[in-house]
Design a protein around this nucleic acid. Structure first.
Lengths: 356, 356
DNA sequence: TTTGGCACTCCGTCCGCGGGACTGCCAGCA
DNA sequence: TGCTGGCAGTCCCGCGGACGGAGTGCCAAA
């Protein structure tokens, strides 16, 4: 950090700041490079185009602006956006109506997965960007209950409920044949015995239990353990989930208008691993996070920006929710939107928890 | 039908048939209009370009070919494709390897939803088209069991298993508070009492039960009915599902290369209702179905073709599986692919059923 | 320090042209 | 009668040049 020449507030005079601000605002709305003439005509500066040219040249030297080619206007660099976000942006709050819509949508669904899905597509619709919702593995979370249901003769569905209200189910094929009675008993046993443990702990305890003498003779206990281990062993269903909603919205964006970059962008959104990587690192930070272009591998190669925020209770963050779009996006609107939605989500989840 | 001039085998002489066949084959592989010269050079005809031109003109008169513009080669019309599919196509069987891959992939997953998902994306990968899987409502199917699980104080997850092995779950919020004990009893009651009924029947019977005197006094029964009705009432989770997999594959297709038609096409695939409409009508037919371009509303407006087939046991078809792509697709490969996969799927489902 | 002026650069578009790939038609030939 | 070569005509496509527009940098004057 120290080696990189850090730019502070005072490194850039107020007039230049205003110019930068105006350029970015204009460029965000129309997507085109801004020239000195257009800038002069907007009326906010009592300056001639020539003077503005000087200011713009300075801003280019500082690395905030760039020219797509000689004799074109200027567009912001990612560094420019960063400065804008940190120092110049006045985010305009959501309207009453918008907040209502969010509250309503989020409040509506009851299963967590649905809530997340809905939030994602709502976010996508309201922002006209791609909405992403990341829910990390259930593995590290505390289990509230675990039930087993007979689905077919040797197929059993295991429903695990996390303390955070997440419900996960998976179907397992079993060697033994279980009756409904037995399954009820097993459900009870595991739920009462292991409530409050993480899946990982449960597995280890079950394995330890196998080794105890009591288990060797108690056939019912044996079956219980066998089933429990099978349920917990293959953890794939408990792994992270990433919902990408409204990917079609990038079709509108002029920055992805040609078929080639469109294709690339689309495929990029399919590669969920990379996205998960980023979101996972963001998970440690508390507030709203904005990643612009070169600030991460993924966003750099695709000229994306990400606006995201953690959701879940402050004590136990659940995942990340946010939007992905071209660097040129209305940060001033995206920021409060993502912020509000993530808070609404968190509130919703908090409620779920209180209920139990 | 009678009013439309139907074309029979004998309406078109063998040589013209071969020419049409060759044109379509070539156009399918390279996507470009075929001229008389290229056709002559392929070596299959001992004819001069001029003669071929005559044949082609005839084929155009019959409505099998068309010219994008004067002085371009010819491309097939949807009618041409239809004739090709009905009379000229020699579908080449899948390779041993391909069949193995399908069997393996389909055999792997255990939960039906997973199987469907996998099949869809497998289909998309193997065909390089968009894979669709349609599973119609569970409403009309017979229920094998119904279980209720405590998820939170006033939240209960209902897991319904259909006779066809489909597992559906939904979370309901309840007015009463239920204990685990009660839920077990209720699960048992409903499962034993109503196994073999459709959801619709269950609902009607439950409602009738409310009206009986016995129910007025038996508090447990009241609670049972209340829960059962709540579970069955909002049927949205039991409604059709449509999985569209590999939508990105249309990005490759030259027919959708310009940004505008690409955008349209993409949005079309989002509109699941229309797709469901088509697939639902196809559901009544038994064998492999191919819809070309103008043969349905949806395919016409987007210049799609659909190759699909019913899956599920013959007595109780479950849904449709197929691919969607541009009219210009390798029908000779798509047909056996979809056919085989749908059979593999059906076999898999049959197995599930036998197990119970 | 600001401004107007000027020369310059680069992009996008339009236009005209020629080549290429067809077709349809016609006349001649088996 | 059916096939073929030839010929005129049509249309697309790509290329190159010209031109206008937008914007810049620099310089000299206010």
């Amino acid at each position: 950090m120290a080696s990189r020449h850090e730019l502070h507030d005072h490194d850039i005079d107020p007039r230049a700041r205003e110019v930068l601000r105006e350029i970015i605002l204009q460029h965000i709305t129309n997507g085109e490079p801004i020239g000195s003439r257009t800038l002069a005509k907007c009326g906010k500066f009592q300056l001639s185009p020539a003077s503005l040219r000087n200011v713009m040249a300075d801003l280019e030297d500082l690395g905030f602006l760039q020219q797509p080619h000689t004799s074109a206007g200027r567009i912001p660099t990612d560094r420019g956006y960063r400065f804008f976000i940190n120092n110049l942006m006045k985010s305009h709050a959501l309207t009453q109506r918008e907040r209502e819509v969010i509250d309503e949508e989020v409040g509506n669904a009851s299963e967590i997965e649905d809530v997340l899905h809905l939030s994602g597509s709502l976010l996508s619709k309201m922002s006209d960007q791609v909405g992403v919702i990341f829910m990390p593995t259930l593995l590290q979370f505390v289990i509230r209950s675990m039930d087993f249901i007979l689905v077919a003769e040797n197929k059993i569905m295991c429903v695990a409920v996390g303390a955070n209200g997440v419900v996960v189910n998976k179907v397992i094929e079993t060697r033994y044949v279980f009756s409904r009675d037995e399954l009820e008993k097993i459900s009870r046993f595991i739920t009462t015995e292991y409530t409050g443990c993480t899946l990982d702990v449960i597995r280890r305890r079950l394995i330890r239990l196998t080794e105890q003498e009591r288990a060797q003779h108690d056939q019912m206990l044996q079956k219980t353990i066998s089933l429990g281990i099978e349920a917990v062993n293959d953890v794939a269903p408990f792994e992270h989930e990433l919902y990408v909603e409204g990917a079609a919205s990038i079709l509108n964006k002029p920055e992805f208008s040609d078929a080639v970059s469109l294709r690339k962008t689309f495929l990029a959104l399919q590669e969920k691993e990379k996205l998960i990587d980023i979101l996972e690192t963001c998970l440690s930070e508390e507030g709203l996070q904005i990643l612009v272009g070169s600030e991460s591998d993924f966003t750099q190669t695709h000229n994306f920006s990400i606006v995201a925020r953690r959701y879940g209770s402050t004590s136990a963050p659940l995942g990340m929710v946010g939007i992905i779009g071209p660097m040129r996006m209305e940060y001033a609107r995206m920021a409060p939107l993502v912020d509000y939605l993530s808070r609404a989500l968190s509130r919703k989840i908090e409620e779920e928890q209180v209920e139990q």
